[in-house]
């Protein structure tokens, strides 16, 4: 099972977030799985069309996912998936 890790900034809104093991094969599946554990968090990561929000990045290992629209990138057993925010603000 892959493991998902989260930017600390999401803990402001979901204080119980911890690195989480997931079964999903695609990033989209993984986001749905996380949503089932933390209601509403999907809306922080993707918009209602399912597209990754502009200032959010998801890595599988060291690689940025390629499909920001449908999140079809696949994760396998030992992958680490990072849900990050882009380096923007101010």
């Amino acid at each position: 099972m892959a493991i998902v890790k989260f930017t600390a900034n999401l803990k402001r809104f979901y204080p119980d977030l911890q690195p989480t093991q997931v079964k999903g094969e695609t990033v989209s599946d993984v986001v749905d799985e996380i949503e089932a554990m933390h209601k509403g968090i999907k809306d922080y990561i993707v918009d209602e069309s399912g597209e990754l929000r502009k200032h959010v990045n998801i890595f599988i290992g060291n690689e940025l996912i390629k499909d920001r629209k449908a999140l079809t990138d696949r994760a396998s057993g030992n992958d680490e998936i990072y849900i990050m925010q882009a380096l923007s603000g101010g």
Binding site: G40, D47, V56, Q85
Partner: peptide, 20 residues
Amino acid sequence: GHWGCKIHRSSDGQTWEEIE
């Protein structure tokens, strides 16, 4: 900036609840 638009409501102006 990062996480989209949200709505919060409160009955007392002290504690807030996020709604969809």
